[in-house]
Amino acid sequence: MNRRAQYIAFRAILVKEVLRFTRIWIQTILPPMITTALYFLIFGRLIGSQIGDVHGFPYMEYIVPGLILMTVITNSYANVVSSFYGAKFQHNIEEMLVAPVPNYLIMLGFIGGGLARGVAVGVAVTGVALFFTPIPLHSLWIAISVLMLTSILFSLAGLINAIYAKSFDDISVIPTFVLTPLTYLGGVFYTVAMLPPFWQRISLANPILYMVNAFRYGLLGVSDVNLAAAYMAIVGFIAGLFGFALYLLNRGHGIRS
């Protein structure tokens, strides 16, 4: 396949993935907007008004970056894990496997779909947040780059989950028992400075803490972690997961007998 043909193949997968989640926007875009509105209403307005400022920002404003990124994480992951596993389950993944499209392009197509949904939902949730509170912008580039890299990372994680999954149960186990706890404990609703020293040290082992704080730095200019360490962690995870997912696809794990 020459470069032009590869580009056409990549675009075909990407367009298919984007059409898939936009066609069912009531299931994919709307729910996170409603959930986030409820978070702002309950945690931000009702409970947050009792908490006071955090790092010099009203509580409602402080939790905005974390809530946006939490939505991006769950939606990027959910998009790829459900789409790829659905393609395995219905066997339509074979449409790509019989074609000369290289495995890395199949991966990029699915990751592109996860990224598109992550960004779309992130923008939608940001719009909801603006109804409740102004959102400062400390560094547009840091905010955009962290959001996109995080979306790519969790799209890759969702892809690996889908490659291994043998049933629909298998695609809900990781989000329920791993992703959700790590996200909630990743400093979305609090600063680690609020924790006892022991739990502060434990929290630093949570990769999501780095992403949430890096994104928070992009919007608010405050962070619990070193920004360079956050970027290194995200990029390192992306490189590792990309290599691992490509290895699995090249071996045909879960998709070829």
Binding site: M1, A9, A12, H91, E95
Partner: peptide, 29 residues
């Protein structure tokens, strides 16, 4: 390949199934 079992996405429109498949082979849209 025409496999024994139906292996297309049943929620996709007929024409899209063909156009997407052509795309995977690098056929312009």
């Amino acid at each position: 390949l025409v496999p024994q079992e139906f292996n297309f996405n049943v929620f996709e429109p007929v024409v899209e199934i063909l156009v997407n498949q052509a795309g995977y082979y690098g056929v312009p849209r």
